[in-house]
Amino acid sequence: MREWADFTIETAADGTQTIAFAGPLVVSSVGTIDARLRALGAAVEKVDLAGVSDIDTVGAWLVWRVAHETDATITGASKKAWRLISAVEDKNPDSDEDSEAELTTSEEVLGGVGGYVMGYAHGVLELLGFLGALVVAAAKVIRHPGGMRWTSLFRQIDLGGVGALPIVGLMSFLIGIVIAQQGAVQLQQFGAEIYTVNLTGRLSMRELGPLMTAIMFAGRSGSSFAAQIGTMKLTEEVDAMRTIGVSPVEALILPRILAAVIIMPLLGFYASLLAIVGGAFVSMFSLDIPFFTFLTRIREVVPMHDLWVGLVKGPVFGLIVALAGCYQGMRVRDNSEEVGLKTTVAVVQAIFAVIVLDAFFAVFFTEIGWG
């Protein structure tokens, strides 16, 4: 038979009134007394819980409300009752609105700053752990080259390099056309349109070839690295690899990074050549410079160190893009939404890092006389 909660009002000799609760103050039994308590107009000084056999959050809120409305003291409460009443009191919405709003704003600001700092610190530690595992895996492969997943490496070279030739080539060809056409329009104002060859050649070799290729590679291959590894994390394939003694870093990450380092300078050089061909194509019509004359003059006006600048940038850009994609892929947790989020973060981080590094390279090579 269900036991119902009840209460009585006791009056002491000094006139002090006490509400004494009895029975279980739980959600299923307090319905019979809640309306009576609300209709009670008596002023009480104490709320006695000595007769309460059980209590939950609803009962604790009921006791707190009675004590709060009558400014009474709670006595006879068990440890469980005190814990629940304290939790209910902490969530009291009846405090002063201005001070509460001010306190909430301060807490939000401090909490946001603290959360950002802690998240940044955890991210740095996680990145260091990732780089450490990568260095260990690379050292192991150097000592034992037979442990390298060569099939996976060549597969990634095929997907990220050979598969990217059409889109990179078309993009670079069109960029070369734009550079030559717009450069010629501006240089014609000074009668120096012949220097369109210099502009197209040097800009393609030094900057736009490696940079645009890296951006395209980040959107095409860096995103696929993050999505592939992130999906494997969700489907627990990465955990399964660890269980059977296969290192995910050696099997998944190292081949992708090596493939990116190998193919990026080749793709960058290929993109530079196609951009020059695009410039020669448009110059043949807009500047009346013969196609092969344009290409021949490229050899005269583009110094050899411009070629080396582009080739040096390529592996560094490839390393950055692959690291961003693989690292974010390994950070995927919990649900499929994380895959899309980390893929987006990987592409944004890779493009940002590539542009920053390109600015650094521009200053560096100018300082050493390769400007």
Rank of each mutant, 00 (worst) to 15 (best):
I157M: 13
T231S: 09
T32V: 15
G369M: 09
E89Y: 08
F154Y: 03
V117H: 00
G115C: 09
F173M: 04
E89K: 11
L211N: 01
V44Y: 01
G76N: 11
I320K: 03
A322Q: 01
T57P: 00
L307K: 15
A251L: 12
L174G: 03
I157Y: 05
D6P: 01
A164M: 00
R256K: 13
I320R: 07
Q181E: 14
F291C: 05
S223M: 09
W150H: 11
G325L: 07
P265N: 10
R220H: 00
E89D: 08
D306A: 08
D358P: 00
A218C: 08
E69C: 08
F217G: 00
E108K: 01
A138H: 12
R242Q: 12
D34C: 12
S224K: 06
G314D: 07
I368W: 04
G176L: 05
P93L: 13
S247P: 02
A60V: 07
E338A: 10
A280C: 04
A240N: 06
L159F: 12
T151D: 15
S29G: 11
W4H: 13
A226K: 00
Q17R: 15
R2H: 14
T73Y: 13
A259S: 02
V356K: 06
I263V: 08
I351P: 00
I74R: 04
S95F: 11
I85C: 02
K313A: 01
Q228M: 11
G111M: 02
P248L: 08
N335D: 10
Q188R: 11
I9N: 09
G201W: 05
V345D: 13
I142S: 05
I253L: 06
V109M: 02
F130N: 03
I253V: 08
L307R: 14
E126G: 11
I355Y: 03
G51H: 10
A280R: 05
L274T: 01
V178A: 15
L128K: 13
I194F: 10
I351G: 00
S106V: 04
P265T: 10
E100N: 14
V332P: 02
L287R: 04
L174E: 05
A192M: 14
A280S: 07
L311G: 00
G278K: 14
A138I: 15
I175D: 02
I157V: 06
A22M: 13
K79N: 14
H122P: 07
V26T: 15
Y116F: 10
E97L: 15
W64Y: 15
R149G: 02
D56K: 06
A214T: 00
E45L: 06
D306P: 03
V44T: 02
E100T: 14
A39Q: 09
G191F: 07
G115R: 11
R333T: 09
D306I: 06
F352W: 08
M118E: 13
Q228G: 08
G201N: 06
D334Q: 10
E45G: 05
I177S: 08
E102C: 09
S86K: 14
L131F: 15
P93W: 14
D94E: 15
I244A: 08
F281K: 12
M118H: 10
E126V: 10
S86H: 13
T11W: 09
L274S: 01
W61G: 14
A67C: 12
T200D: 05
G219A: 08
L134S: 11
V136F: 13
Y270F: 04
S283P: 02
V162Y: 07
E367D: 15
G329V: 00
V52M: 15
I142Y: 04
L307V: 12
D94I: 08
F292N: 09
V321Y: 01
